[in-house]
Design a protein around this nucleic acid. Structure first.
Lengths: 169, 169
DNA sequence: AGCTTGAGTTTAATTTTAGATACTCAGCCA
DNA sequence: TGGCTGAGTATCTAAAATTAAACTCAAGCT
């Protein structure tokens, strides 16, 4: 009997198929970063952009969408606004990444890595990620708490503390 | 002078802002897994679902979208179809993950991990990922080729072999 | 021969996004 | 005082995605 079956011995329900999926962390993350321009904005922040006009120029994103996405990222605490002042101009806002935003790096590096492997141009990737100190390329890896590298097939998903069934009204 | 500026000394263009973004690996990955139900289907495959009716039941996704997304995932080589036969019924297709699909695990684990940290219920996550051999929890980490753990802020992005400027016709 | 089931397809209505365009607004400078 | 600039808003149209609901289709069973 696996960990799913244990949680539900007597009811006729299937814990995998009849569970409540509304508190899934993947779905909740996608609610925030799953919209079309959002991850691309974050990509540009990582590459060094910070101004409204930078994003507009490099992404070609309509201004109204850009404003909406930036506002949402700030509300969620993924970006923060600061001000900058170009000599001879007034102060204007710029967008910088927060620690909460930095914590999205592994997820986005995962997308980058898969794209590099399966969808890159014949010459290779358009952008490379390097470790600033040693210059070596970086990648994302799955590891367990004890530090062992973990193959995808050796990951077991089990019900967690917030596991619950879909209410069957 | 940083690695971006080096590639473009004489033109008046800014390599970060005037580069061609159409061959970005992140964007290309999102073209495939960025649609609404796609990642959630993969999540269910990892949790053990394989049949059309499984996905429909647990996701509550409309059947036509489910069929479209499954077909796309098979065309892209992320899922493959096999057949199963329930006693007394005819053979029917089921969907299993391929190695190419397994390679999306780090990206999706990254999303899961961020959601667990910032958007989980007070009790904790709904699902936990464990290393099958040792039972310890797994997470995704950014490391460099030499095995050093890398902080997000220590990642430097530099132009890669397929870097090019946006043509300015 | 007709009923049932799982796995779809079709259709049509609704909702959401995307995108273009024009407009606003605050301060700096001449 | 008037023009310029960066950072937005507002408005509208077109395109795409989402959804529910009804329909199809091929075995297996009775």
């Amino acid at each position: 009997m696996d960990a799913w079956t244990e949680v539900l011995q007597d009811t006729g329900m299937d814990p995998r198929l009849d569970r409540d999926t509304s508190n899934c962390s993947i779905a909740r993350t996608l609610e925030i970063v799953g919209e079309k321009w959002t991850i691309l904005i974050l990509r540009e922040v990582w590459y060094g952009s910070s101004r409204f006009s930078d994003f507009e120029r490099v992404l070609g994103c309509p201004r109204n969408l850009l404003a909406t996405r930036l506002r949402m990222l700030v509300e969620e605490g993924i970006l923060a606004t600061e001000t900058y002042k170009e000599p001879g101009s007034r102060s204007r806002p710029k967008y910088v990444i927060t620690p909460k935003g930095m914590d999205l790096v592994p997820a986005v590096m995962g997308l980058l890595q898969w794209g590099d492997r399966y969808r890159a141009d014949p010459e290779g990737p358009a952008v490379l990620a390097r470790h600033r100190e040693c210059g070596a390329r970086v990648d994302v890896q799955v590891r367990c708490e004890r530090g062992h590298p973990v193959q995808a097939k050796d990951i077991e998903s089990v019900p967690g503390p917030a596991f619950r069934l879909r209410s069957s009204e």
